[in-house]
Amino acid sequence: MVGRTAPKYASKTLCRIVIVEDEAIIRMAIAEAARDLGYQVIEAGDADATLDYLASGQRVDLVFTDIQLPGSIDGLELARQLKRRYPNLKVLLTSGRLAAETAQSVAPFIPKPYPVEEALVRIAETLTSQPSDA
């Protein structure tokens, strides 16, 4: 934690977020922490599964995705496709390799490694941001 706390939002229990991460332990940790805060969390191991899930018609409010992913597209391309197909869907990117400037041109970004609490703060902030904030 870096001196910040996750904002308390009354609607948190209604928010559905997808965490896209191929490192199972990292995904499990952030997913568990987000569920503890009241979020409904869907876990995906790659971008293709995320797109599959959204194509099923399930409502999702935010996708928090790593950029380096297995599968047909990476997280950056996933973010681009999501913004195109689902304009109201919020996206938060993370990476341990890519320069922040590159990612932030597409969506909000948090560098790896990140404290779980910091990621939760960024998720909450991104959920309440305006589309133009990205």
Partner: peptide
Amino acid sequence: VIEAVTGDEAMIMLDA
């Protein structure tokens, strides 16, 4: 509940 997408992930979680 913890979730594994692949068998390899399941093996990792078993040792977590």
